[in-house]
């Protein structure tokens, strides 16, 4: 294939990857930004979403659309419940201490992985896409569902952004993010905001997991890569900076696609990784963060 269509394909792939990544990373960014904690188990919420999608689909097998819609609505709710429980049982009791939270969420990661491995098994399992069609470009074919995923992710990103900037809860979140003590003094129920943010972060990851599973399959170890990439996106985009998160996700998704056109793939990954690291070194606060963050 000539270079033009090849680049077009890489761009297309990069955009889809980027939008899903943005959705996953948005959850981490909120948690990171508002609560100032590193949630190592964030990728596991993504995985739980995917596995629940498989479970709902097999519950109503033969009706992929019904199963998928059920998963899209109930999956994140269940995952949100798990997150609230984790917040209430563990994080609140250790007072969101940054170091203890790392250990606790590593513990949570192991617990979730083992429960899924025991109940669901170690194999990757496929879920049928609710809507399936193949888009034929002159040079190659492409999955129509992927385009739908990209659109749905974009829609969810916009919705979340509106919720945070235009609603009372969003205001409380932003207040807590800026200054926790001050927010408390102004009557913001900080503890409840924390629980809500933690749950919302988990739910966003879970939605991304549900959306992605017809493309990627559900596997109990699938949470690792989204976690790493989300971290990177969040830091590059600047802590708690939603627009930054989106732009960073686009940069990373598309760079990854384009570099792979020109370099041998593993070398491409090495280069892309080093590039991102150097961006951070030059702008430690992220592309859109404060210089001295």
């Amino acid at each position: 294939m000539s270079l033009g269509p090849h680049l077009f394909l890489a761009l297309l792939e990069g955009t889809v990857t980027a939008l899903v990544l943005a959705l996953t990373a948005l959850g981490l960014s909120l948690v990171f930004g508002v609560m100032r904690i590193v949630n190592i188990a964030h990728g596991e919420f993504f995985m739980l979403g995917a596995v629940l999608a498989w479970w709902f689909a097999s519950l109503v097998s033969g009706w992929p659309v019904v199963g998928f819609l059920l998963a899209l609505i109930l999956g994140p709710l269940i995952v949100g419940g798990v997150a609230v429980a984790a917040d209430w049982l563990i994080l609140r009791r250790i007072d969101y201490d940054p170091e203890s939270t790392i250990v606790a969420t590593i513990g949570l990661l192991y617990i979730i992985q083992q429960v899924v491995l025991t109940l669901y098994g170690g194999d990757a399992k496929a879920v049928e896409a609710p809507i399936y069609f193949r888009v034929s470009f002159p040079w190659f074919g492409y999955s129509g569902y992927k385009l739908i995923v990209a659109g749905a992710s974009a829609l969810l990103l916009v919705t979340t952004w509106i919720a945070i900037t235009r609603t009372e809860i969003g205001l409380q979140m932003r207040a807590t993010q800026l200054d926790e003590e001050m927010a408390q003094a102004f009557g913001v129920p900080v503890r409840r905001v924390y629980a809500a943010v933690f749950a919302l972060g988990a739910m966003l990851a879970a939605v991304a997991g549900v959306l992605v599973v017809p493309i990627q399959q559900a596997h109990y170890l699938m949470g690792g890569d989204p976690l790493l990439l989300s971290f990177i996106v969040v830091i590059i985009g600047g802590l708690g900076n939603l627009r930054g998160t989106l732009v960073a996700a686009l940069i990373i998704g598309i760079t990854d696609g384009i570099i792979s056109v020109f370099f041998s793939p593993t070398l491409a990954k090495v280069l892309a990784t080093l590039l991102v690291a150097l961006v951070l070194v030059i702008r430690p606060g992220g592309l859109f963060g404060d210089e001295d963050s």
Binding site: F32, V38, F231, I232, A277, L278, L280, G285, G286
Partner: peptide, 28 residues
């Protein structure tokens, strides 16, 4: 020399990324 230009979580991520690059290099 490079990573210590950053602090806090940025340092955490930069070291993570260098390590990931090192890991991929051993594969390459």
């Amino acid at each position: 020399l490079v990573a210590l230009r950053t602090t806090g979580v940025s340092f955490l991520i930069v070291t993570l990324m260098f390590a990931q690059a090192a890991f991929l290099t051993t594969l390459h």
